[in-house]
Amino acid sequence: MTEIAARPETPAPAKDGADDEVFLVDPSIRARRRENILVAVVRVAIAVVGLLAWEFASGRIISEFWISSPSAVWAALVRFVENGQLMPAVQATVVETAVGFVVGAVAGMLVGLVFGISPLVARILDPYFTALNSIPRVALIPLFILWFGIGFETKVVFAATLVFFPVMLNTFAGARDVDRDLIDVIRVMGATRLDAVRRIFVPSALVWVFAGLRMSVPFALIGAVIAEMFTSNAGLGYLISISANQYDTGGSFAALLVTTVLGLLLTFVVSVLERRALRWRPAVD
């Protein structure tokens, strides 16, 4: 296939330019490579220095009781794995996060799309949603426990309420951002209202929707973990709070570490999905 419009920031796709000398010696390419190396090295250095400082300070400057230490955190992690506490906790949290995320995201997308398509409905309901969004969500947990018990449902519902608003607001913004000219153009081509929604509104809003989704992955996790801390029977949140209650700082840090890694992984998964769904977008850096 003919290769056209090779974007300037992707220098030399190997197939047609790698053997050209300029791609080896051009100062702009070497400068770019040097910068990449610098970024990677400094990042690793920050982690190493941070961990070393922590290890050093622990027990010397501040008591290990308060801040634990990297080696103690590692030991706690190994202990969690060996006594079989970790995997069930991870599994519970992942399932709650995922289900809560999907429920909240689907609801958010539907409401956002309806609002975007019908500005009238949006105008009528706007104050109600603003009010709902300003409720401190944590304050709802006691009610949720009353309604749904201390099991799975409470955690899912709570995670979903955190995910709902960012996704809804982003979808709404995306649907409002739709180019009206595109709608006119396909109407003249004979499109029905449903066609306009399917072919224009949904794909066009997808850019915004994904931004909202990516942003709310951590919210889903936060929701699940907070609910676990309140209802205290399973999951990473439970592990964090039970460790702290037993003055096991190392255990708390270990559970926190696993939670963080989980958040990064989930965000990564959504980013990959996003990149695949939005393949048509010109590469930005």
Binding site: D179, D181, L182, D184, V185, V188, M189, R199, I200, P203, S204, L206, L278, W280, R281
Partner: peptide, 12 residues
């Protein structure tokens, strides 16, 4: 059929 000033292709 309406050929507008902007090309109005669907970018996706």
């Amino acid at each position: 059929s309406y050929v507008t000033q902007k090309d109005n292709l669907l970018p996706w």
